[in-house]
Design a protein around this nucleic acid. Structure first.
Length: 429
RNA sequence: GGAGGGAUGGCCGAGCGGACUAUGGCGCCUGUCUUGAAAACAGGUGUGGGGAAACUCACCGUGGGUUCGAAUCCCACUCCCUCCGCCA
């Protein structure tokens, strides 16, 4: 959610910032409603003050009449007056409610403002490579893509995934299932022991309010699974639940920064990506992901974003997987993001870069939507923190990269050194 | 699923139609005292909206209702607790 005061004060600047994302916002209606709302509130408050006066007088007269005094005529007068005031207050309340409902509808659909440091550009062609690490290995044979490799080794069962649940579901068997479990344990251990995150185990289903708070609703309901009987939605990412954790809270002085890490299943309908990445497990309806999350004071926002990128990259370096960091342009970022870096790992079998992490600062956008505030110091006014999220990392694509990168000519898969204590063997298969 | 109890400010907790402008305690902040601290004492201390400000309005789980007037009465809902049933 943007700050409506900012739109009121500098509509042109806000519009220009949104235009960088390809949005063409029209604030005329919004500002008219805002004006209408504030005028109605002012009038209603004045009337309510009058009403409180009249009511107090009424009470005093009643008390007097009980002790023998009494002015029945004046009482009737007061009754009529307050009733008239009440009617007008009701009307104004209706005006205010309608204006606020429309304002909210408009505000909930406006994306976050990109940071100044976010590069210009309207689509992925304008993304730039910020850094890269490692060289693609050369093989004395043609490396296989994971869909062939997984099939040949019998460790990725696409057919039975479909049998159980349909297209874009899969089953990991034996060594691949174990590889995933090892990766999850290892990633969580590194983040909690070395990067300073607190591990969280979260519900995979959340209320609509939580989805609104993170920015996934109302605009992106198409991509979500939900329970039809209850008000419950399946997480597309742990970011949603982590944002909801402190909804409607005021965090105590000294509470920030907060750093969480959580592994959850992620559920995505992928309707918008129909036909894309249909082979293998690059794009599926359900996958596991380790997610990092930070709540920080605004001044720390950009440094915190760098730390997320660093914490995610660290894992890839330890896995010795060549990767690069992309700086996303304004038009290619997610709805709630102000600045995003994607991390892509090289996949020698598919011969493409796979996005295994996306690190973003949402500035105060989600904090406003979720009403998360913090008190900078005792007695100070509550303020909105910045929220940041970054994958660390998404499992299926890391599994792809490990299988494809570490494959050997004899068909076995070498265990990355970092995972040996978790796998307990030199070869995964 | 059934029966009962509950939800009030950062926390505990009073209030059960009319000065609630929400008692009191704890905590926190400021001051006095002190070399410093503690203690004691005094004052202050919720959130949000509107307003340049003075100030004003709203908020006692949520949403309705009754009334000139609701934390207080009525209805519905949500969540929590206790017990019963079922169950990994």
């Amino acid at each position: 959610m943007l700050n409506i005061d900012q739109i009121r004060r500098t509509p042109d600047e806000v519009a220009a910032a949104l235009a960088r994302r390809g949005e063409e916002p029209d604030f005329v209606e919004l500002l008219r409603l805002d004006e209408e709302r504030r005028a109605a509130i002012t009038e209603r408050d004045t009337l309510r003050a009058t009403h409180n006066q009249l009511s107090r007088e009424f009470g005093q007269l009643m008390a007097a009449s009980r002790s023998g005094g009494g002015e029945p005529a004046r009482l009737e007068e007061l009754r009529a007056e307050t009733q008239a005031v009440n009617e007008r207050v009701e009307d104004l309340g209706e005006t205010i409610r309608e204006a606020e409902a429309t304002i909210e509808t408009i505000m909930l659909e406006l994306p976050n403002l990109p940071l100044d440091s976010t590069p210009d550009g309207l689509d992925e062609s304008a993304n730039t490579v910020a850094s890269s690490w490692g060289e693609a290995r050369s093989y004395g044979f043609t490396p296989m893509a994971h869909w062939d490799l997984g099939d040949k080794l019998g460790v990725i069962d696409m057919e039975r995934g479909a049998k159980l649940s349909g297209a874009r579901f899969y089953v990991l068997t034996g060594p691949a299932a174990r590889l995933e479990r090892a990766l999850i344990s290892w990633m969580l251990d590194v983040h909690t022991r070395e990067h300073g995150y607190t591990e969280m185990a979260l519900p995979a289903m959340v209320r609509e309010q939580v989805m609104l708070g993170s920015g996934n609703l109302p605009k992106f309901g198409d991509n979500l699974y939900r329970d039809v009987e209850e008000d419950l939605w399946l997480l597309p990412t742990a970011e949603v639940a982590l944002t909801g954790l402190h909804r409607d809270e005021i965090l105590d002085p000294g509470a920030l920064p907060i750093k969480y890490v959580a592994q959850t299943p992620c559920f995505r309908r992928e309707k918008a990506a129909a036909g894309r990445d249909t082979r293998g497990i690059k794009r599926v309806h359900q996958f596991n992901k380790v997610e990092m999350y930070q709540l920080v004071e605004p001044e720390q926002g950009e440094a915190a974003l760098d730390s997320l990128v660093e914490d995610a990259s660290d894992l890839l370096r330890r896995l010795e997987l060549p990767h690069r960091v992309l700086s996303l342009c304004a038009g290619d970022m997610g709805f709630q993001s102000a600045r995003t870096y994607d991390i892509e790992v090289w996949s020698p079998g598919c011969e493409e870069w796979l996005e295994v992490s996306s690190c973003s600062t949402c500035t105060d956008f989600q904090a406003r939507r979720s009403n998360i505030r913090y008190r900078p110091e005792a007695g100070a006014r509550p303020q909105y923190p910045h929220t940041l999220n970054g994958s660390g990392l998404a499992l299926p694509r890391v599994i792809i990269a490990v299988l494809e990168t570490y494959q050997r000519e004899d068909g076995s898969i070498e265990t990355p050194a970092a995972l040996r204590p978790y796998i307990g063997a030199d070869a995964i298969v």
